[in-house]
Design a protein around this nucleic acid. Structure first.
Lengths: 343, 343
DNA sequence: CTGAAAGCGCTTACAG
DNA sequence: CTGAAAGCGCTTACAG
């Protein structure tokens, strides 16, 4: 049998309540007894039984606030599945989830939601964060008042958040670069279609890609970088122009959204299959284009895990005070082709 | 608050013990009361609280037997990590793991281990199974005596096992085929190096590969299929001969072990990088060869999950009688290249 | 500062 | 067949 609080109490000749106070650093115990109990627990290698804790905690209940932007974004559906799965596992531990979906990517709106949660008194917060000073301050304020915050999908630099769950974006750009190199057998002309030069994630994906091209595929030239503002209509137009200007283009690397717009341009000019395409994520249009063989590779970031893990980490902390081992938990760089897109 | 056994007892005007008997189909309750309690539970949508159950179960303890072949196989290290992770999560529920490592791939030995577990009285069994009649009978016998069995990594057909956790091997062969097609840009000569024509897994990986070649890459010819008996020395020799016979070979597809032997032959003849290579799994030699750029793609089968999931499924069943939703849980077909081999 | 008691939801001998 | 009581490991008012 494992060591229990009862056994420690017997040995120390105090009550179980007293042992509990010591082990959880609660006040109201003399230093002498505190010391003694600690030593015994140490010597016996006491580990609290989480089931016992959980049952006692049922009287309370713990709410984790979740902030997700833009309801319509299908990418966040998978994140939500991960959150719901974690919630299901933790339900019997009295964990509740309070979703707040922001309508914009506006820092002020996200700030207001954080403050709303703070006023309401959630026990912890998980959020796809906007990298803005206002938000950084709000997060630090939460953390200072003992409410842990975990970010997922997008991170905020220099804040007191507990950890971040998401891609190493530079690395995923490198993977894209390597795949492009293999597709072109090391030579040819490639264009990059990016969402916006103002979006950190897109720039990091470009940086990684370029790095691999420089180091490993010096015969592949990056001939153009086009912004599509993550919009299919703009993406279509500009890809069209791109393809007309550079008739012998061999590959297109798309860092963000607007994937189907770009592919439409390829189809329109009869260059689908001929020009290789690499994209990110698994939105339905992208999945279909992979199935059609127009997109060669799409690189996923394990959105399920990005939802699942933050909730588990926060629950672990709330129940046993344990911090995650690293402060950036990297989700898989998940390469998909036609034959494994559905698994 | 959720509905508890206590609330049902109050409403039905019986004791909590009686409610417990009814809800768990234990004997010793009159039909009349049984009926009444069931109706109330139904009406209130009662769901047992797993924490309460778990705490009560602490008095007992549940042992899950695990059978893994061949200790030295590094592939099983990752499976073991998955098992250990699941065990860690379930420890406080009183779950214990009893490992038995078989020294051979002999059906008789595995049979003896199953019988050993049966005599010892484990509560459930997870195993990487040998597809043999003797084993099938032993498994069915276990299941008939209410001991659930989950298979992982390799399956046994037509048995009463609860479910299988592992790759769809034909599908993973298809993925390999698609990748080879992309590497060769749809044309060239490819050879297959397989472990043995007697191993079902290898044959299925060949079938999937061939199917994709036939359907999508008719300009790629499969020029030879070589057996290496999963051994590096044989693999080296026969790959050498292969490369000498077919001077303009463009790609090698390796279905099983002996990967480093084959690559050694490529290096020896100065054909590394020139001839494309696709392999399976992440044994250390393979990982290094991917990093060197000699293997272009290696396809993983998520060994961690193959260990983790069976234990979770069995625990779920033991604690709440729930069966998994499907009887083949497919693990990821996990494509790796140099840049994401370490994640 | 310290301890005795009640309670979280469920199970299990045991007495009637 | 049925119920009262004790117990799983931990926490929390409350009394002293």
């Amino acid at each position: 049998m494992r060591v229990t609080i009862r056994k420690i109490a017997e040995i120390a000749k105090v009550s179980r309540g007293t042992v509990d106070k010591v082990l959880n650093n609660r006040p109201g115990v003399s230093d002498e007894i505190r010391q003694k109990v600690k030593e015994i627990a140490e010597a016996l290698d006491y580990k609290p039984n989480i089931i016992g804790k959980a049952l006692a905690y049922q009287k309370k209940s713990v709410t984790i606030g979740v902030i997700i932007p833009l309801e319509e974004n299908p990418f966040f559906e998978d994140i939500k599945k991960g959150i719901d799965a974690a919630h299901e596992e933790l339900k019997d531990f009295g964990v509740k989830i309070d979703y707040q979906i922001t309508k914009s990517l506006d820092a002020q709106e996200q700030y207001n939601v954080i403050k709303h949660f703070q006023a309401k008194g959630v026990s912890a917060l998980a959020m796809a964060v906007i990298n803005h000073d206002l938000i950084r301050e709000a997060i630090d304020d939460m953390v200072d008042s003992k409410i842990p915050v975990v970010t997922f999908n997008t991170d905020i630099i220099g804040s007191k958040r507990m950890c971040f769950v998401g891609h190493d974006l530079v690395k995923s750009g490198k993977v894209a670069g390597e795949l492009m190199g293999k597709l072109l057998n090391g030579k040819g002309k490639v264009a990059i279609i990016t969402g916006s030069h103002n979006i950190l994630a897109h720039n990091q994906r470009i940086d990684g890609f370029k790095k691999v091209m420089d180091e490993d595929f010096s015969d592949i030239k990056i001939v153009d970088i086009v912004e599509n503002m993550d919009q299919d209509s703009i993406s279509f137009e500009r890809t069209l122009i791109l393809l007309e200007n550079i008739a012998d283009l061999n590959g297109i690397y798309i860092t963000g959204a607007g994937v189907s717009g770009a592919c439409k341009a390829l189809k329109f000019l009869g260059k689908a299959h001929e020009v290789k395409v690499i994209s990110f994520d698994f939105v339905p249009e992208t999945v279909n284009l992979v199935k059609e063989g127009i997109i060669d590779f799409t690189i996923g970031q394990d959105p399920f895990e990005q939802g699942y893990k933050p909730i588990k980490i926060l629950a672990e902390y709330l129940f046993s005070g344990q911090y995650p081992e690293v402060n950036h938990i990297q989700t898989k760089i998940d390469i998909r082709v036609k034959e494994n897109i559905d698994i």
